[in-house]
């Protein structure tokens, strides 16, 4: 009996180890094979010679710009949605619907967002396939992340602050703006950073909303097509005419993307950790 339990217990430890081991191995593999490729030239130059040489600057640029653009939409919408849920609509039916929708958005397959982005932003709203359509599409995809994170932060603001505010004659909006929101700022920041980490790595929603295989110039307006790190990895590994030859470029691109998403996520974890410590 005792012995059997020890085995079971070790199995759960083993499961944990396997997961962490796999995770580390993935990072290690990409790092090991990609690090040698990363040079200033690789980061700052466009691809050359049919994308078999040169750098990935346009892809980095496209990824950053579309992600920044996404933030502009998703942060205000996400934060105010969370404010509604936590400050105005506690227990209301509208809140229940919002929650259902947020939950649902979090699990809609990303390719479906791609279809929607094409059907709605690109074709129906006539925004065309470009940075803006892609940013809006990814923005909807990451909306739940911002909402959940902000809501957690709002919930952690003690009610006594709100009461004190009201007792001094502050209106609801004044209490939210000058007491609740400043307190929730780290949580909002976490949400924004996490949404960046997630949004950067998404490729499927871009496929029909403006990502380009190769562009000789950088996008100059938000309606222009763009190159993207994740998409670059995909085409270089599956459609480039010499897949073996461009392995280093593939690894280098994967490493750049992985470092970006990992660091955003680690920063978010760190802020969240500090926030929770401060609270207790």
């Amino acid at each position: 009996m005792r012995f059997k339990e020890k085995i079971y217990l070790s199995l759960t430890a083993l499961a944990t180890l396997i997961i962490i081991g796999l995770l580390s191995y993935i990072i290690f593999d990409i790092l090991k094979n990609g690090i040698g490729v990363i040079t200033w030239e690789f980061l700052s130059q466009p691809p050359r010679e049919g994308m078999t040489k040169g750098g990935i600057f346009p892809a980095i640029y496209g990824t950053l710009v579309r992600t920044l653009l996404m933030l502009v939409f998703v942060v205000p919408i996400g934060v105010f949605t969370a404010i509604y849920l936590n400050e105005y609509g506690r227990g209301s039916n509208f809140s229940k619907w919002i929650r259902l929708a947020i939950n649902n958005l979090a699990s809609v397959p990303s390719i479906v967002f791609g279809l929607f982005g094409m059907g709605f932003f690109v074709l129906f709203l006539r925004l065309g396939a470009g940075l803006l359509s892609a940013a809006l599409t990814i923005g909807i995809l990451t909306l739940p992340i911002v909402v959940v994170s902000t809501e957690e932060a709002l919930r952690a603001v003690p009610n006594s602050y709100r009461e004190a505010g009201f007792a001094l004659g502050a209106t609801k909006w004044q209490v939210i703006r000058s007491i609740v929101l400043p307190q929730a700022l780290p949580g909002i920041l976490t949400g924004a950073i996490l949404s960046v980490g997630r949004g950067m790595g998404e490729v499927a929603p871009l496929l029909f909303t403006g990502v380009a295989y190769y562009l000789p110039y950088l996008p100059s307006s938000i309606f222009d097509q763009f190159m993207d790190l994740g998409y670059h990895i995909y085409i270089m590994t599956t459609q480039s005419f010499n897949i073996e030859l461009t392995r280093p470029i593939q690894y280098g691109t994967a490493l750049v993307l992985l470092m970006l998403t990992l660091s955003f996520n680690i920063i978010a974890i760190f802020i969240r950790y500090r926030m929770r410590r401060k609270r207790s």
């Binding site: 003690p158 006594s160 602050y161 009461e163 004190a164 505010g165 007792a167 007491i179």
Partner: peptide
């Protein structure tokens, strides 16, 4: 109003 627990912002 002054509350039971001091609640400065």
């Amino acid at each position: 109003m002054v509350f039971q627990r001091p609640n400065p912002f």
